[in-house]
Structure formats: C-alpha cells, structure tokens
Design a protein around this nucleic acid. Structure first.
Lengths: 359, 359
DNA sequence: CTGTTAGCGCGTTCAC
DNA sequence: GTGAACGCGCTAACAG
C-alpha cells in the first residue's frame, strides 16, 4: 500500500498526501482531513526506507553502550528510550561488552546512514571519537569524566567527597577503598577519577593514603566480596570502607557476613550509586540520579535535532545525595576485628546486613 | 559516496559492485578483489535506506520488551543482542513499560517496514497478537506461559515444583508465597502460572492451600518487603516462604532483618530466578538460564531468517536448577517466631541474611 | 494551496 | 561473467 493509493482514493497528488500526513503547512484543512481519513481507512503507513532515502532523516537515534544488563546502563537506557519515544524517535541499540565487539563496531560503524543522532555511554578514545564524529550527527554522552563530547554526568569528585566526609565525620581514619586498580578493558574514566578523589579526600583530612588499603573489586558483586576478603586478611584492618559502587559494596557486605562480621559493627561501608538493592540491604550510599541523567541527555539530543542551530552544550552535572542507612556508624573506641556473632543462627555463617527505608 | 563512484574507480558497473560487495556468485575473483579494495580505499558504505528500499530487507530485528531496566529483561536482551550482532543484524529496541506506551505502540506499530523479525518479550493479548502478525515477519517470544507464538522459556510448573519440594522435604508445611495477587497491568502470564502451581504443589503434598498465606509482592524488592511484613503480622506465621522472584525474596529478607529475625533461623525463604544479587545475599533459589533463553530465541529467529522454509518451532523449555544457599533449612522442632538476636550489633536492627558461594 | 518533476542510491531482472 | 535499465516509495524544489 503506497502513497499513490491514498492519493487516488482522495483525488489529490502524492505530494499533498505526504504534506498532509506529516502535518506540514500548505494544505487546506479540508483536504488534510480527507487524506488523513483515507490513509487511516486504508491502513496506509509511510515506508520508512523510502522516506529516509528521500529525506535523509531516519527518525532513529543510536545508543552505544558497553552493557545492557548492568544496573546503571539499564537505568540510563530505559530513561533515554522513554524520552526518545515521546519525541517519536526509534532507538537502535548497540552493545559493546568486550573489546572484540568494540573493534568490530568501530570498523563498520553500523549507525552510519541509520541514525539522526547518537547517545554515547562508552568512553571513546581519540580514534573512536573521530569515527563517531565522522558520522556527522549530533552526539551527547553520559558518563563521569571530562570529555570533548557534550555530556551529562555527576560531579565525581564531589560524590567521592560526600562519601568520604561522611566516614571521616564518623571518626574513621583508617579507610579503605574498593574500586578498580588493574587495567580497565573498557577504558571507563570513573574508576580512575574516584580513586584519585579518594586519595585527595584523605589528604585534605590530614590522612596519608595507604596503598594497601586500595583493593580491586572489578566493579562487580563477587569482585567486591573478594576485595573485602583481602581487606579482612590485612594485619591491620580498616575501620571503614568506601566502595566505589553499590554492587561492590553489597559484595563486601556478603563477604563480611561469611566471616561472621557485620556492618557497621565491625566495619562501616558506604557505596556510590543508589542501586535498588542498596535500599533492600540497608546500604549507606551516595545516590546519583541515573534516570535523570539518561532523560536529560536524551532531551538534549532531541533539542539539538529540533534546532540544529542551537549552541552545542558542554557538560552538565546533576547533584548526588548522601543516603545514610545502616552500614555506617561512628567509630566506636577500639575496633573488634575478630568479633563473631553469638546468635546461634542455623546457617553456616551469620551475616549482618542491616536494612531500613526499603519499603 | 555511492556505488557509482566505486564502479567508475574500478571500471565496472554498479551492478557488479553490488554483487562483488555482497559476495554473490557471478563475479570473477579478480574483479571482486578490485572492487572490494576500491570500496575500502574510498571508504564506501552501502546506503542502508536505499538498500532496504530496493531489496525489502532491513537487516534489523526488533525487540519488544516491557522493561529494559529490570534484571530479567536486561539479561535476555543483552544475550539476544549479542547473537543478533554476530549475525550482522542491528537491533531496534521498543520498551513498553506502561499501558500508555503499549497502546501507542500497537496503534502505530513502529517496527512496520523497519525490521525483518521480532523478538517479543511482552505477553500480547489477542488483538496485539494480530497486530504483530500483520507485520508479516518471523516472531519468537521469550516468556513463561503457553502462547500461540513460537517461544522459549522455562517449565514454570517444574520450577515452582522444585522450589516447593525443597521446602517440603525440609519439613515445612506451613508455607506462604509472595507473588502477585492483584491485577497485572502488564498482563504477564508468569504470576498466575506460579501461583496456580504453588497451590497444586501444596495439594499434592497433602496440604490444603491457605489463602491468607498468599500475599502480594508486586514482583519488586520493596513489594517483597511489604509482603513479608504482612506475613509476620499474621497470628500464625509461616515457617517457610516461596517468593516467586528473587527480587521479592531479597525484599523479604530485608523485612525479616528489620524485624530482628533472620533466614533460615526464623523462616526459610526460597526464590526463583538466579539473580546476581541472590548469590551475594546467600539466597536459595531456583535459577533459570536467562541468557540462554535470550540467546536461543535470537538464534532461532536468525535461522528462520536464513531459511524461511524452515518449520516454525513451537515451544522450547530450558531446564532450571535448584541452588541451595543459606536461607533454607530444615524445620527445627518448634519455630521461634519471636526470637531476636543477642549479638549486640551496633545497627538499629540486626539482619541475618546469610551468604555463600558468592565469590 | 496544490500538482509536476526529479531525484534519493541501490537491487534486480534481463540481455549480452 | 558483466552491463543496461528499470523500479523500490517517498520527499523536495519548482511551477502554477
């Protein structure tokens, strides 16, 4: 079923059909109504490829993300997709979870010719940036660090500072961090930023950073558990842990429990993210407005599309907020690293992950 | 940069360029190599819209999902996307998180003309099914219940049976379930299936289902917590809880802890899913192979595309597996509903969510 | 306000 | 094995 059919049924030309259906000016109300009605009755739909070929517009926005199945990216993508759908844009999704996928993607640049704009969630290196720029479409990115692209994100230093000051004000001075210390195959900027900020925050509190208190948690739940295991094996344990993501923090809580320890009794733990599960396990954390980040980036992109003459924005940072729950507490005199619960629980090892405000 | 340019650079016609670049037979090896080289040097890329318009193929597969930012759907989508990318298909993503979005989607049917196939993660009603069928492309779905569409999923009754028999074999007879009892705006089939199976399983163990032990958890973490609150307020508490999702189970664990109770000491809890966080909190659960579900559905779709004469598959069910962790234990003589830990923990309320195997 | 005329760039017959 | 010619269905510029 083509535009000609609607044109014949209405007694007008295909050009008028096109104008009428797209709401363009230059069509009398009467004709427009007839055309719209006829199209509806016939069940006519514009052919996307023909329309794109003729107009150069695709009404599609590409999202380039490292992961779909990670909490943070899922939240951002979902919020962005909602905005795009509201603006009548479809979403083409590209996930680059490993280096192979990433290399293939940048060799072929599949969005070429297929999208009107790009929402970028990976941190591109210079070559990748050049590749993306060569597509000649507006780009907005969502992530932590400084970047040549227009971006939205949070103030990473500020978020780390909030978490650290919380611990320091509680009297903690022997503070460990769980983050990424090794190589980062995905080249995220966040791990480096947060680690650097962690050290800076210690120094400004007059505490000299201790390298043995910086351990790798791979930004995953099991990684966080392994990291906490390592910290617990230290001759002199930390009294507080700043986990650079809630997932690592939750892994750390699990590790604690398997050692018969608990937060905040044996060690205070604070995370970053505002993960759904953080509320369930009572984790204190610095929440970032993930959905707002995705929505704002998406809206910016849509505006850029509506008004191409608009000034390209720089970076926008959204506020984070400290949520104190039950895994952080004042340093109580002497830490009791070897303490074990005497609660007669039936399970093999008692965990004390404390919760509140979850409902 | 168009095919003509490559043709001129090589001294052949655009027809030959097209054949050479797509690996079609009928081109001499020498010519093909020249064309390929010239195309690479010039940086020529086929125009997607022109190609689609001329061939009718879009090399794109649509995914219709209720959510992106829910664990289950994120896993399925990520796995499917990976398969599609490997087969050189792009992914058009449509999320229908609420009824409005859903109605808009089915009114406009955006994938029309834009996709070669559809992966459906929502449970369509009859009208919606007709709409999808009208697109005239292969469809495969991923979900629980019976459906007219080719589908992959798990044996819901079997999974419930596995969870329930685990509890029953531990000696539990007063078993509650947390699921969805109210209206389901998304029309998922799973809640009904699991609730029905729950009752059937009780009866086959000679236990008469008690309606007061079926509570609503909204399939969310806070919903699970609220549900557990309700169960704890009962005059006669259950000794075990079958949560119909891990997220609800984790919410329930949080509720327990806020009441000074713990699993499996005061009540055993088993979930369904195999959620990442289940390992972290030591939740016993019936794991379903989420990624395999997505990958299998995707592969099936690709095969259908490669060989349209292939017999349309019916339903494939993948096995689930019981993972016993630390929230389920034998019914120990008399339950102690009022018990409180005497562990002197610093936090306001002690939780005993027990973990293992998380690392 | 509306119709006519050219493309948009490629795929695909058919001849050769 | 290769080229010429037409068509996919729509949009945009121009003419009226």
């Amino acid at each position: 079923l083509r535009a000609v059919d609607v044109a014949q049924a209405t007694g007008v030309s295909t050009a008028t059909v096109s104008r009428a259906l797209r709401g363009l000016p230059g069509v009398s109300a009467a004709v427009r109504e007839q055309v719209v009605r006829a199209a509806a009755e016939l069940g006519y739909r514009i052919s996307h490829s023909a329309s794109s070929l003729a107009s150069g517009r695709t009404m599609t926005i590409g999202i380039v993300t490292p992961y779909i199945d990670h909490w943070y990216f899922g939240q951002v993508i979902a919020a962005a997709e909602r905005e795009f759908a509201a603006a009548h844009y479809d979403v083409l999704l590209h996930s680059l979870p490993d280096n192979d996928a990433r290399i293939r993607f940048f060799q072929q640049l599949p969005p070429r010719d297929r999208v009107d704009a790009l929402l970028v969630l990976i941190v591109p290196d210079d070559d990748e940036l050049a590749g993306l720029a060569s597509l000649g479409v507006p780009i907005v990115s969502v992530f932590g660090g400084p970047t040549p692209l227009p971006s939205v994100g949070i103030d990473e230093e500020g978020a780390v500072s909030t978490a650290m000051r919380h611990l320091i004000e509680l009297g903690h001075r022997r503070i460990a961090t769980i983050g990424r210390t090794g190589a980062d195959p995905m080249r995220f900027s966040t791990p480096h930023l947060r680690r650097t900020a962690f050290r800076a925050e210690l120094r400004s509190a007059g505490i000299e950073p201790d390298p043995t208190l910086e351990v790798d948690g791979d930004y995953t739940v099991p990684g966080g558990a392994a990291a906490m295991n390592a910290l617990l094996a230290l001759p002199e344990r930390p009294t507080a842990v700043f986990a650079q993501s809630d997932e690592m923090a939750i892994g750390a809580l699990g590790s604690l429990s398997r050692h018969g320890l608990s937060a905040p009794h044996d060690v205070s733990i604070v995370g970053i993210d505002g993960h759904d599960m953080a509320a369930a396990v009572g984790l204190s954390t610095v929440a970032q407005p993930v959905q707002e980040l995705g929505a704002l980036a998406a809206r910016t992109l849509v505006q850029l599309l509506v008004d191409p003459s608009m000034a390209v924005p720089g970076r926008t940072e959204l506020p984070t907020s400290l949520i104190v729950r039950d895994t952080t507490a004042p340093l109580s005199g002497t830490p009791r690293p070897g303490h074990r619960h005497a609660d007669g629980v039936a399970g093999p090892l008692a965990v004390t992950a404390v919760g509140s405000r979850a409902e």
